[in-house]
Amino acid sequence: MTARDHVTLEIARADGRRSRHVVPVAGAHMRVLDLLLHVRNHADATLGFRYACRVGMCGVCAVRVNGTEGLACQVAVGDLGVDTVTVEPLAGLPVQHDLMVDLAPVLNDLAAIGAALEGGDAAGAESLRTLPPSAGERPAIERQNGCITCGACTSAAHRGGGAAGPGPAALNRALMLALDERDAKGRKRLANLPAMTLSDAALKSLDAVCPVGIPLAAAVRRLQGLRAGAGG
């Protein structure tokens, strides 16, 4: 941690310019979100950015900080260890206003591949299944769970040269459902699922940027394996 009491914040703005602001840092634990709020409240009332929960649970404040995806409410300024902090909107998503992007494509990706449980005959059951947490694929499903659809992986995949198609978050959810014994479609979901074509390095970058630590590269690989098995 460094003990800078000011940093220069450089923000990519809607009109293509970059605004620069010298912003006080009240402590090394101050977040990028705190800097953005400072600019908006004291320097430029028009600065556009999203935030809601401020504890890393809603995922709307995802941006690129010094080039790398992260949640503005979680990235601590002191951890960056630099004097200039650059904040840009996520890549690969439509920019709406300064740092605000349209996250609808992330959710639409999920809808496009039908990524929602289909309960089948058991959907109306008035009881809960007995499902030991260590049995079958349950641990594997739990490992992939917790996505906050923030778009960080979409952005990283785009930068890594990922082709159009369902993003990593959607593929991860498809995997969870394919493994889920409760889903009526199960592995049949995999038949028409487009593959994700990313280099190993780009796949690794997905794991690095996921703010909730989901092993996305493993998900993509497991999907490939399942598809190869299912198609045979």
Binding site: G124, T130, D180
Partner: peptide
């Protein structure tokens, strides 16, 4: 759980 796909924590016996 059964229709929408949530999953809640279980005891070891399921």
């Amino acid at each position: 759980e059964n229709r929408y796909g949530c999953f809640f924590d279980r005891n070891a016996d399921g």
